[in-house]
């Protein structure tokens, strides 16, 4: 990552961090309702992957989708309005946190059932391939999805048909509420896809430079039609599975340990250390992001709730 790229990625990460911290507060104040999954601590993957995509590349995410949507370019105000159930939300208040969609920015959607997005991304990749375009489909999923049947069905077909799809697994070591060791004897997701000949690798997802480099290494071949790839990012989910999760299944991370791992702090240390960024410019990223979030909150609050009858009128395309 050069200095400009680093600035862009850092700005995105701060936007996600500030957005999600605010969403956590809004959830507690009941301004955001329903089931909320936060990705605090995992922003680096979203920022480094989406930072190298084009608008016409397609991105799919799952139930933990805020970061991916924002990183792909979804306007923060409309994302927040969606979480607050407002008319100006990305989905007019129909979808909420788990079902964000922003077709305009190539964020084709988040699905709420684990792994359900993977075949969707394959289908988009097939369509892009059939149309002769060099756009790619990218799908984010957690390591829990790897044990679902449709994962293997998808990996086989993606490899067989050499689809332009990048599978990005955010391996946070937990599937829902239990550690990966309770779900599979295979520690690394790359080992699950290796028998199918998928290229890719495993990186420290909290090392944003490493994620960026890995994506830069994989993406050109995927785009050139040489077949799918898997990027496994080892991350750490700082929050519980969902907001309000009693969180008894995870060992707390000490603040010192977290400072070591926090992808934002790490990137800032690295980038100032090697001279890409000036230490003086760092506070600006956070301040800008938090200001933007506050403006988004105010704007979203201004947006009215949707007309209730919209719910039934959208059941079918008329």
């Amino acid at each position: 990552m050069d200095a400009e790229q680093t600035r862009a990625v850092l700005a995105t990460m701060w936007r996600i961090r500030a957005f999600e911290e605010r969403v956590g507060q809004l959830k507690r104040a009941d301004e955001v309702h329903g089931l909320i999954h936060l990705s605090i601590g995992q922003e680096g993957v979203a920022a480094a992957v989406c930072g190298q995509l084009r608008t016409d590349d397609a991105v799919y995410s799952g139930h933990r989708a805020h970061g991916h949507a924002l990183a792909k370019g979804a306007p923060m105000t409309r994302a927040l309005a969606e979480l607050m159930g407002r008319r100006d939300g990305l989905c007019r208040g129909m979808g909420g946190s788990m079902h964000l969609v922003d077709v305009e920015h190539g964020f084709l959607g988040a699905t709420g059932v684990v792994g359900g997005n993977i075949p969707l991304a394959l289908g988009t990749a097939l369509a892009l391939h059939a149309a002769g375009r060099d756009a790619v489909a990218v799908v984010f999923f957690g390591d829990g999805a790897v044990q679902a049947g449709l994962f293997a069905e998808s990996v086989n077909l993606a490899a067989l048909w050499r689809l332009p799809v990048l599978l990005v697994c955010e391996n946070n070591g937990f599937a829902e509420f239990s550690p990966r060791s309770a779900h599979t004897p295979v520690e690394r997701v790359r080992d699950v896809v290796a028998p199918y000949g998928l290229v890719g690798g495993t990186v420290d997802g909290n090392d944003v430079d490493a994620v960026w480099a890995a994506v830069a290494g994989l993406l050109p071949a995927v785009r050139a039609g040489e077949g799918p790839a898997l990027l496994e990012c080892l991350t750490h989910r700082l929050r519980g599975h969902y907001e309000g999760d009693p969180d008894r299944y995870r060992e707390a991370v000490s603040s010192a340990e977290w400072r070591e791992r926090d992808p934002i702090a790490r990137l800032q240390r690295a980038a100032t250390g090697d001279g890409r960024l000036d230490p003086d410019e760092l506070p600006g990223f956070e301040r800008t992001a938090r200001d933007q979030v506050e403006r988004a909150v105010l704007a979203a609050r201004e947006s009215p709730f949707p007309d209730a009858a919209l719910a039934a009128s959208l059941a079918y395309r008329r």
């Binding site: 044990q147 049947g149 994962f151 293997a152 069905e153 599979t184 295979v186």
Partner: peptide, 15 residues
């Protein structure tokens, strides 16, 4: 062996 049932079952059986 291309069915999800295969993948899910073999993983659990190994585990």
């Amino acid at each position: 062996s291309k069915q999800g049932a295969f993948h899910e079952s073999l993983n659990i059986a190994a585990l």
